[in-house]
Write a protein that binds this DNA or RNA. Structure first.
Lengths: 88, 88, 88, 88
DNA sequence: TCGCCTGATAGTTGCC
DNA sequence: GGCAACTATCAGGCGA
């Protein structure tokens, strides 16, 4: 573990606090998301369906990203890498 | 399911977009957290231990919150509620 | 926990053994898979690419399953469920 | 990458199919394991505890294997190898 | 060969 | 109270 000066104590404290702060914000966003679903439900939407729609769109995204990654892997395997394909 | 006017389509779109936006931010925070752990590691801290520390503190917090909630329940039952106990 | 006769001891033992047996077989399959990748490599294939291909195909599958699930969710939400869509 | 004859295509297909088949079986075993845990639960066992037991036994095993390996290393260094120590 | 990083797995939490 | 989604942990593979 890091050297045993009192300095380390301060570093540790700082790190822990930053992490906890970020996790707090993350949890808050989770709560926000749940809230939006709740609002959707109140407006007559079926939450399960809504979740599936979101999930499906996410799958689409991963699919596209995977295809891109596959292409780059091919290029790399063929020794043709290096910022190979512009995104536009 | 919500009424089938075109309005619903707009609502749905809006909901999905809000959710996706929030999930994006949430994911970004996850990345930030990972980054902090990385920084910790670079400073010689053991990530696994650090995680344990954070997790333990979280447990402590929820225990304290639970006890706090119980206390407030008692106070409320006694007709003595209202920002009853400062945390410091 | 379950009643304290000696019987329970036997049940427990049996459960643990079944689980351990299954996990062993599972680990063996993991080894087999690694072996196939190794064979692929020996035949000149790029493992990373191969993994991506497999992963991409898996994504395709999930995508299709998700779409099917979404459809069923819609049908259910509309009160039209019950073995709604044959797979053949 | 492997040579570009049509043969490669067949090899690739075969490899992917073998991998997918194995992964399928692996997933099936995972399902079996979950099923056993479910059965355990139905018989009044606490799943979390049960998992811990299995995990501990696994640790024991690897520790014992490690010790065994160390012992064999010593024996080998002393020119005394060959099925040296029975497990019972 | 070692360290990093991604993908797999187990545990936890929220929903029904 | 059971089930499913999500998060966090862990192990194996890849690159340096």
């Amino acid at each position: 573990m890091a050297d045993s000066t009192g300095l380390v104590r301060g570093q540790l404290r700082s790190l822990v606090e930053r992490i906890e702060r970020l996790e707090e914000e993350k949890a808050a966003l989770g709560a926000d998301i749940r809230e939006v679903y709740g609002e959707a439900k109140a407006n007559g939407f079926d939450i399960k369906t809504l979740r599936r729609v979101v999930s499906l769109r996410k799958l689409d995204t991963s699919q596209r990203e995977e295809e891109q990654a596959l292409l780059e892997t091919y290029l790399h395997a063929l020794g043709m890498a290096g910022e190979p394909v512009a995104d536009n």
